[in-house]
């Protein structure tokens, strides 16, 4: 058993004329929270979709838990769970039925018990018997994440899990992610929210212009930050400043 849960090497992907990924490399270790940071259209979702076997890369290699996403896609799917950028819940079914459905598909021994446990963990017990299309955005997102936890997959992909959530909901998701990582689940999360990456991630990679232009722990990234500003500003540079400096969008600095 290696220590590497996700291995991405020279990954390339184009959609017709648009070259989205131009050779992406990164590694995610077992049990860590890894944040893929990037602006709109950087290719975060594309990367996640390739890793979750939904898209085929044009070139390069990607493996999850040692399984190649192309050749051993069935094995990969057994090891992962995807929480896509937009909540993928069945609106006509109730919250509980959604969870039971996923549990049955995953062949979980006691689907109903699993569903009830997750409902209470995500504060959805009261809404369990309501159709999911009556849920608020935050509730749907929580249900969506709960559905991804069914069957305790080894690796979880969270594509912008807190977009559209209120601060409370965001904290809730952060807590869930941390809990999962504590229990040994590997989490690859994408975000545009720099605070989120700063709060949550053990390591961060910045995807820009089709490549990973910087990666490492927050401290390592801080070292990349030009120190000039630190001389007269007392506070440490926030990740946002680091990000903007690296990406070169200085006009947006607050």
């Amino acid at each position: 058993m290696t220590d590497i849960a996700i291995h991405v090497k020279d990954l390339r992907k184009s959609f017709k004329a648009t070259e989205v990924l131009k050779g992406v490399d990164f590694e995610v270790r077992r049990g860590e929270i890894f944040a893929l940071l990037g602006s709109n259209g950087a290719g975060k979702t594309t990367t996640i979709n390739i890793l979750s076997t939904l898209l085929k890369p044009d070139d390069g290699s990607a493996s999850v838990c040692g399984f190649d996403v192309g050749r051993q896609s069935e094995k990969v799917r057994e090891s992962i769970s995807l929480t896509g950028q937009f909540a993928a819940v069945d609106g006509i079914l109730t919250g509980r039925e959604n969870l039971v459905l996923i549990a049955k598909l995953r062949g979980v021994a006691d689907a109903h018990k699993t569903a009830d446990a997750l409902l209470s963990r995500f504060g959805l017990s009261d809404a369990a018997k309501r159709r999911a299309d009556t849920y608020s955005g935050g509730m749907a997102r929580r249900l969506d994440i709960a559905m991804s936890l069914v069957g305790t997959p080894a690796v979880i992909f969270l594509d912008e899990p807190t977009t559209g959530l209120d601060p409370e909901g965001r904290l809730e998701v952060w807590k869930t992610a941390k809990d999962l990582a504590d229990r040994g689940t590997t989490i690859l999360l994408t975000t545009q929210n720099l605070e989120e990456a700063e709060q949550l991630a053990d390591r961060i990679a910045i995807l820009h212009g089709g490549k990973i232009i910087a990666s490492g722990t927050l401290d390592e990234l801080k070292k990349l930050f030009p120190p000039a500003k630190v001389e007269y500003i007392e506070k440490q540079p926030s990740l946002e400043e680091i990000f903007l400096a690296i990406v070169g969008q200085k006009e947006a600095s607050k």
């Binding site: 979709n49 939904l54 995807l82 896509g84 598909l105």
Partner: peptide, 10 residues
């Protein structure tokens, strides 16, 4: 709704 993506990644 992304349900195909959900099922296909399972």
């Amino acid at each position: 709704k992304g349900l195909f993506a959900r099922f296909h990644s399972m």
